[in-house]
């Protein structure tokens, strides 16, 4: 649908173009952190699975470029106990994420995400610097709604209808994994080394200027053969990571600025869990991970809504078997 076409939207209080733009813009903004929380590469846990970017309802394509800076500050043990990193440790992962989304049909869209990763680590006196491609992702989304569901006021049951997105993502093991010959420790990796298939759902409702959303994700990692780990040859075995599920709640508020541009603040709460891995079918009870992350982001959109600038911060505040990290994200999206 062309953006200038009529959209079913009750009693607009701002120009029509502004109206649908807000709804579409919310979709972009709300998923800044749902994307980053599940795709964070955290050198120990690799690239993870990502659900990719979401293309606004009435646009044909979007390109998104983001830069994230992830710093490490200790870790949680498998019992959830927090421990500091050894003295003198300095762990940093920087990522450039380039994503492209393309509309296939009125309710279908496809997106591709390409992360470039830079690891700069000093840990227990060991220094390493690794740069490379991360795990790329390919996502297919179905929009289970034909008309924009964001409203200005609740006016009967019909106006409560949310936007629902159903999707699937395939994570490709394109990064440098623990099973390549280019790493010496878990801090060097840029990817997990496994194909992963995720099922995703997003439920979002906007009643201007407020918006709420929930994103759920369930991922299955495919078993793979391994004959080297951390640069050392090993007797061959098959390894499978545990299934991964993630849940993100987001709440947003938008300020409509005088020049018809918008500024949106989004707070998010994410939970990530990965079940235990297995070796030749035997469960490794010391593996698996959990992480809870809180995030706050701001997004500015110009009046035409074709450029969106994003800035955010998220921090893990609870977990097990995973480093405690803080991620600062900056990005820009352009829709066509």
């Amino acid at each position: 649908m062309n953006p200038t076409q009529q959209v079913d939207m009750p009693i607009p209080e701002v120009p029509a173009n502004h109206g649908y733009g807000i709804g579409l813009f919310f979709t972009l903004v709300l998923f800044i952190f749902s994307f980053s929380s599940t795709s964070n590469a955290a050198s120990c846990c690799g690239g993870g699975a990502s659900s990719g970017i979401i293309l606004p309802k009435f646009n044909d394509a979007m390109i998104d470029m983001g830069f994230s800076n992830e710093t490490y500050n200790g870790f949680w043990t498998n019992t959830g106990q927090y421990k500091d990193d050894p003295k003198g440790s300095d762990l940093l992962q920087r990522r450039i994420n380039i994503s492209y989304a393309h509309r296939l049909a009125d309710q279908w869209q496809l997106s591709v995400g390409v992360p470039l990763v830079d690891n700069q680590n000093t840990y227990s006196g060991e220094q390493s610097s690794v740069q490379g491609l991360g795990d790329m992702s390919l996502s297919l989304w179905y929009e289970a709604f034909e008309k924009v569901t964001c409203v200005y006021r609740i006016n009967g049951w019909e106006s409560l209808k949310p936007s629902i997105y159903l999707g699937t993502s395939l994570t490709l093991p394109t990064g440098i994994s623990p099973y390549s010959d280019r790493v010496d420790s878990s801090f060097d990796i840029t990817g997990l080394g496994f194909y992963r298939l995720d099922a995703n759902i997003i439920i979002e409702k906007t009643v201007y200027p407020y918006s709420l959303s929930w994103q759920g994700q369930y991922g299955y990692a495919f078993e793979r053969p391994v004959n080297q780990e951390y640069g050392q040859g090993v007797s061959p075995y098959n390894k499978q990571l545990g299934n991964r599920n993630a849940s993100t709640f987001s709440a947003a508020y938008t300020w409509f600025l005088p020049n018809l541009s918008m500024l949106t603040m989004t707070a998010s709460h994410s939970e990530l869990e990965e079940k235990s891995a297995s070796y030749d079918g035997i469960t490794d009870t010391s593996s698996g991970l959990e992480k809870t992350t809180l995030g706050l982001s701001f997004a500015y959109s110009n009046a035409i809504r074709d450029w969106i600038y994003k800035l955010g911060i998220s921090e893990a505040n609870e977990g097990s078997n995973i480093p405690k990290t803080q991620i600062i994200t900056m990005g820009v999206s352009h829709v066509y």
Binding site: M136, L172, T174, Y179, S180, N227, Q228, Q232, V234, P236
Partner: peptide, 27 residues
């Protein structure tokens, strides 16, 4: 074409290694 490029250019390691250990590094 896009999907094919992703699969062909992406992988930086042997995702289906043989069942033999890597003799050169298996010390």
């Amino acid at each position: 074409l896009l999907i094919m490029v992703l699969f062909i250019t992406g992988c930086q390691e042997d995702l289906m290694p043989s069942n033999d250990p890597i003799e050169s590094t298996l010390l």
